[in-house]
Design a binder for these strands. Structure first.
Lengths: 336, 336
DNA sequence: ATAGGTTGTCGAAGCGCTTCGACAGCTTTC
DNA sequence: GAAAGCTGTCGAAGCGCTTCGACAACCTAT
């Protein structure tokens, strides 16, 4: 293993000079710099991460805490995680993957040990048990998701309330009156995950203004659960012509069921989904949808965290504006 | 920040004693141990990760390199990643998330800097460019996937050849003769990802023995691509009654298309999928499938790596035996 | 009773790096 | 032409921990 000292000797300078070449924290003559860089290359030197962390009390690692739940649509998580990892690298950080398994203890462990310089928390609940800890230790952190109380916290999320409103508007404009909302699994609501409730809130308040009759039903993913849910909905509101689907694993089953019942999309029934672009495009009917900008959320989270670590910028809540893309699954409400 | 020295002082012992209490590498009297543990708790001490890594040249971190590709089904990746993270924790390791972005450089960086003690590589290609590096540096590593040359490497994977054979057997036993294989996206084959080719190999060799007529067609995910692929298949082999699907994002489109064409599953046509359990169970028809044991793969990978890091166990190729679960999508071939 | 083992603890060295203060050798300024 | 300011480099201290050898204190066997 090659050390700084060896590089220094090889280049005929002192260790501190090599260090300054590497960090750029003091000016170094072009000549010296080149000699040092040359030696680094020749010897294949890589700074030792541990030593660096010890001496500088900076690990250049960001911890990413992802939840360990099975009732959430995972691809979105993955997309965010990958966006976080790649963005972090462009800022010189690596990413440590923590699962919800450990819960709040993970926050303590990482904070206490200096393993990571800051953390990003995904799938934050309205009243998340990790938040008090975060505030206490004033560990630099960014949340993806929106808790009830955001004081002293930096959060990034899609504006789900606006998302709900957007869906309501779209369907109302097309003349739909009876609209069913296929929500996330019941567990998601019980856990008070903010985004599900906020979407509903947006749908309801804008829906009311526009004279929509909304019927909200949580739904586990999958074909069977969707069949039951749909039956109940049509039983209760036979005149339903619009659907807003938030649970992605209910999308395809819904389309299949509607087809099976002879309800044509979009002629008889319109469907709006809240899901990643890819899902909307690959579905059996190209879906009118509001995209969940996973990549953007991951990128934003990292960039805010890095800013904090650099002492720039403070607490802030960033809500990304939703965008609705009209595709083939929505159209004018059928004449009565 | 509380240091070892402070704990030592508080407990009235020397620093080394505290260290030995923590590591258990020397015997400590019950009395002293308790005093030290008490102090640790009272002061809320957490060992500094950097200092530890520097002194012991062990970071207690495992690097997990996941590919950054969009043509692979991501949920499986996610499942593996989570399994890796949780298993690693039970062995006292944390997980560093690397994306394929950096490519082989990431291997160099991590190896050189001592950031991680070992690595797990996912989505290994038959002739992966990271492998020479791995062998050179003899960085402890475990691959998930199977390269062409496994000498000096430890690999964990589903036995895809046996998987293919199993699917062939199942359909042959049911009396099917013309079987179409819906493969992964063409890019996957071009890249020579082992698992796709091995599955095909298993299907072909066992299929030949059993007198199956196989038609293999790569397929991008999604409805449109599947529609084109299916049309070509049925054009070429109108008598096709069996389907083996390896690309999960083609499963639901295929079912929808078959339904649409009035081909009943499983009465007219049988479908066998190679996919995670969850997908098989949630599909619009409960799918006969060979499960991809993502969790198990992740767990195995970590356990082998940890064994290596402890100096136990050597190189080894572990192929998990596939299991085919019969569900509602396969049945006897229709009478001619 | 004495040599030889154990057991439990300590002190000190050192892991590879960052960073601070010092300072030699310049250039600028009045 | 002396005072003041830059620039570029160095030496040394120290980050918090692990680990090795040393060594008291005690316990066996002979």
């Amino acid at each position: 293993m090659v050390t700084l000292a060896e590089v220094a000797q090889h280049a005929g300078v002192s260790a501190s000079t090599v260090s300054y070449v590497l960090s750029g924290k003091r000016s170094i003559s072009a000549n010296t710099r080149q000699r040092v860089e040359q030696s680094i290359r020749e010897l294949g030197y890589h700074p030792n991460a541990g030593a660096r962390a010890l001496a500088s009390s900076r690990s250049n690692i960001i911890a990413l805490m992802i939840p360990l739940r099975t009732d959430m649509y995972v691809p979105v998580m993955m997309e965010i995680a990958i966006a976080v990892a790649t963005t972090a690298r462009t800022h010189g950080y690596d990413v440590l993957l923590l699962t919800g398994e450990e819960g709040p203890d993970a926050v303590r462990r990482v904070t206490g040990s200096g393993l990571a310089d800051g953390m990003i928390l995904m799938d934050v609940e309205l009243d998340d048990e990790r938040l008090p800890l975060l505030r206490d230790t004033d560990q630099p952190a960014v949340l993806i998701g929106l808790p009830a109380d955001t004081t002293g916290l930096t959060c990034v999320d899609l504006d789900f309330k606006a998302t709900g409103a957007l869906c309501a508007e779209h369907l109302a404009t097309l003349g739909h009156r009876d609209v069913a909302v296929i929500g996330e699994a019941p567990a998601v609501y019980e856990r008070h995950t903010g985004f599900a409730e906020r979407t509903l809130d947006g749908l309801r308040s804008r829906g009311r203004e526009l004279g929509l009759r909304l019927l909200h039903r949580p739904c586990e993913g999958g074909y069977d659960a969707m069949a039951v849910t749909l039956a109940r909905i049509l039983d209760e509101r036979p005149g339903t012509t619009g659907f807003v689907v938030q649970n992605e694993s209910a999308v395809e089953p819904l389309l299949a069921l509607l087809r099976q019942q002879g309800r044509a999309v979009p002629e008889d029934v319109s469907v709006v989904a809240i899901c990643p672009e890819q899902v909307a495009v690959q579905a059996s009917v190209r879906l009118t949808s509001v995209a969940i900008p996973a990549q953007e959320m991951g990128r934003h989270a990292v960039e805010h965290l890095v800013a904090k670590l650099d002492g720039r910028g403070g607490d802030e809540v960033v809500l990304l504006a939703p965008e609705l893309t009209v595709r083939a699954s929505s159209g004018p409400a059928p004449a009565q």
